[in-house]
Nucleic acid binder design. Structure first.
Length: 796
DNA sequence: TAGGGTTTT
């Protein structure tokens, strides 16, 4: 979301504030509404939807086992009893992934049998530089000390599970971990993939008594699916029912209770917990997992934790990170000790090109065929930057395959990117027919979020499409940049999951070490900070420039956000939170969107605005356009267009979907992403609950007057008053009413693309091939004067 | 004439 808040805001301060104080006092007159808890069935439904979200992946894997092979084939004979133990457990639905990890891990001693013959690698010499052996594990440490003291595992443990747990690399470090933590408040753990840290460390803490006195142990994850599946695994290991002693809390799904002593949460969720319990007094230990990913929530959590460890000397903090930035975390926490735990992964050989490749698409294409014609079986994963590139590559591949015909073994090409219909997505998890090699073309989604079985070869051009927010122009830009070394290593690691693998980097070794950044730019330096700043202010952190950020965002970025919050009435002239601001923190939304909702009750369109807002942040991947059916998809979409623009189109989509009984088939017919709509429905339900809570509405009865459209326009303008553009007198470009003068254009996906109305409001400004306004609707001068006069009264 | 990936009591 992009906002322009310039000097004019300051000049209009008194006027704006007067208006806001008035509305605040009006809000005070609203009788308090008791908090509405969601009905059981709603929760059920939400959970059902959540399960469905995971289903394609899980389901296809189950099918795989049924149709092609059993898990036993992976295992050593002596491991079979353990497998059957895992397999027969029906109490947790989410264990299959974990079971697989265990099977693969225990298969490790076999890895020599799969060793790729060196001669094959020599065939590459004319293309690739000398290979560099990258060892992801350390055999010396792994073979370690077998004479561990026997641990007193509690009686509830099944011996076989205890055995499996002891076989994890992390087990050898159990004593070290607990002792170091006893003597230090903060501990950095470097645990590579397959070390078992995420499932084991919280259990060690529990066994060591950290959950006594009604306290709990929390472990954060950046992704929802990780929180749920790991919690299920740990509940299983501890032989308890998920949601009792071991649970998880993610948005729209809470499987935890008073008895929960080990809780897996998304990092964003733990951040929200600060609002109700600023000392996190319920926890004795907090583990921040995957800290190296530096998500914005993790970043803020780290700063807040650094604060509260001073007042809570008993609280223990564990930061789990990848090798590459462990030192930085240690320094951040006053040189906290670092504990290294080796992982258990298969080795991956890295090949570099001898000279830089001018056309990486062409180079990737060539490499795919070289692998296919010279290397033993195993699927190929290719990292590309986006949908367009993937489609181009798929076409080129199919073309070549067609031309080569019988001259090569069969090859199956499939693609994956986030904005792809889920039916088509699941294709990538299917096992190809015998003798056929699968080639998966993927975006970054395959780097961390999804795991595809059977990958032995990775082709990495070394690029990524990255989003960057510019606070000065309040514009996002989406540009292709070289990826980081950490990212490249993560991609390479994807080849070493089922056996030893190979990674072909389409850049030189020199480039890797000299031109790539060590780490990706942390999210906090690339995003609009308005929501985060509102959150920090609501936690009483007023001196934002002194907040301990690991990488402090620019002063300008913070000031821009403060100005915007002031313009929205969330802050008063002294920089303190107003009642409006306090209400805004209740909503998990950008403050501009919350402002629209808060004002909507004045115009009697709260329900409508909640629909629009619930969909708007997902609106860029609501519709999809499959190659070959693009025109049909456009035509179907056009039927849902509203003449007033995209906000109204979203409302149209919502209402039509509802009329069709929230049908999945209808979505498919209209080329609409069903999962996106489901997510929006969850958000909508949450927003309605919150609206009731803060007293904006008392029923979900939608009132639809003759002037509904105009009321919606007013509510939207009350939040987006700074995002108004006028059609320029020459050409088809638009210019902001106030602020930057450079021209921008209506995005081709907009309902208004051909109409080109005189005045529009937009949701966001994105720089891709041009400066595009995304999600636009028509407004008129009268509306702008009425709703945004305070902002446009002065020259800007 | 076209959107990398996450996520929020």
């Amino acid at each position: 979301m992009n906002i322009q808040s310039g000097k004019g805001v300051r000049r209009n301060r008194s006027e704006l504030f007067a208006q806001e104080e008035q509305s605040d006092s009006e809000e005070n007159n609203v009788p308090p509404v008791t908090e509405v808890t969601p009905r059981e069935e709603e929760q059920e439904q939400e959970h059902e939807q959540e399960q469905q979200d995971h289903r394609p992946m899980k389901k296809s894997r189950h099918n795989q086992y049924k149709s092609n092979r059993t898990e036993y084939e992976y295992a050593l004979p002596e491991e079979q009893s353990k497998k059957s133990l895992l397999r027969n457990n029906k109490s947790t639905a989410n264990t299959s992934w974990e079971v697989e990890q265990f099977n693969k891990a225990s298969q490790l001693p076999l890895s020599n049998e799969d060793k790729i013959i060196e001669n094959n690698a020599d065939d590459y010499e004319f293309v690739f530089d000398e290979t560099q052996f990258v060892n992801y594990d350390d055999p010396d440490i792994l073979s370690g000390d077998e004479e561990q003291e026997s641990l007193d595992l509690t009686s509830a443990f099944n011996n076989e599970i205890a055995e499996l747990r002891k076989n994890l690399p992390v087990y050898n470090y159990r004593a070290d971990f607990l002792t170091t933590l006893e003597n230090n408040q903060v501990l950095i753990v470097v645990g590579e993939t397959g070390s078992g840290k995420t499932t084991q460390l919280p259990q060690y803490l529990y066994e060591a008594g950290y959950s006594q006195n009604n306290l709990a142990i929390a472990c954060t994850q950046p992704r929802r699916v990780a929180a749920t599946s790991i919690a299920a695994r740990v509940a299983y290991e501890m032989n308890v029912k998920l949601g009792h002693e071991v649970g998880y809390t993610i948005r729209f799904d809470d499987k935890s209770s008073k008895d929960t002593v080990i809780k897996y949460v998304t990092d964003g969720m733990l951040l929200r917990e600060f609002l109700t319990d600023p000392q996190l007094s319920h926890y004795s230990a907090i583990m921040i997992d995957e800290a190296h990913e530096r998500t914005i929530s993790t970043e803020i959590l780290l700063g807040l934790l650094k604060d509260i460890i001073v007042t809570r000397p008993q609280l223990k903090i564990i930061i789990a990170s990848a090798t590459i930035n462990a030192e930085k975390f240690s320094q951040f926490f006053n040189n906290a000790p670092i504990l290294n735990i080796p992982g258990r992964r298969f080795p991956v050989k890295i090949h570099y090109t001898k000279s830089p490749e001018a056309n990486y698409i062409q180079a990737a294409l060539t490499t795919i065929f070289q692998i296919h014609t010279t290397q033993p079986e195993g699927d190929i994963l290719v990292f590309l930057t986006g949908q367009e590139e993937i489609e181009t590559m798929e076409e080129a591949l199919q073309d070549s395959i067609g031309k080569l015909g019988d001259q090569i073994e069969p090859m199956l090409v499939c693609s994956i990117y986030a904005n792809m219909a889920s039916e088509v997505q699941s294709k990538i998890f299917n096992k190809p027919p015998p003798g056929t090699r699968k080639v998966v073309l993927a975006t970054n989604i395959a780097e961390t979020s999804i795991t595809i079985d059977g990958i032995k070869y990775v082709v990495d051009p070394g690029y990524v499409k990255q989003n960057k927010y510019n606070p000065a122009t309040s514009m996002e830009s989406l540009v292709v940049v070289p990826c980081s070394r950490a990212s490249a290593d993560q991609r390479a690691g994807r080849a070493g999951r089922v056996g030893p693998g190979k990674c072909f980097r389409l850049f030189t070794k020199w480039c890797f070490y000299n031109e790539l950044d060590a780490n990706p730019t942390p999210e906090i330096l690339r995003t609009n900070l308005t929501s985060v700043i509102l959150l920090l202010l609501s936690l009483g952190i007023n001196d934002l420039l002194k907040f301990p950020f690991m990488d402090p965002p620019s002063k300008q970025s913070i000031i821009k956000s403060l100005e915007l919050l002031y313009a929205l009435g969330a802050l008063n002239s002294k920089g303190k939170l107003t009642k409006t601001g306090q209400k805004m923190t209740e909503f998990p939304l950008d403050p501009i969107l919350t402002k629209c909702i808060l004002m909507s009750s004045k115009f009697g369109v709260t329900i409508q605005i909640c629909c629009i807002i619930a969909m708007i942040s997902e609106s860029s991947n609501l519709f999809y356009r499959p190659k070959g059916k693009a025109e049909l998809a456009d035509a179907r979409k056009a039927q849902l267009h509203h003449q007033l623009g995209d906000h109204f189109t979203l409302l149209n989509v919502w209402r039509t979907w509802k009329d069709y009984g929230y049908s999945k088939e209808w979505c498919r017919d209209c080329f609409i992403n069903y999962k996106t709509l489901q997510r929006s429905k969850n958000v909508y339900d949450q927003l309605i609950r919150l609206c009731k809570k803060v007293g904006l509405i008392d029923s979900v009865q939608e009132t639809r007057g003759d002037d509904e459209d105009r009321m919606i326009q007013k509510a939207l303008l009350s939040g987006f008053f700074m995002n108004v553009c006028r059609l320029s007198r020459m050409g088809d470009g638009y210019v902001k009413l106030k602020g930057s003068t450079s021209g921008c254009f209506i995005h081709p996906s907009s309902a208004l693309y051909k109409t080109k109305p005189k005045l529009v409001i937009y949701y966001e400004l994105v720089l891709t091939s041009k400066e595009y306004m995304r999600c636009c609707s028509i407004v008129d001068d009268k509306l702008v004067r009425e709703m945004a006069g305070h902002y446009y009264a002065s020259k800007g």
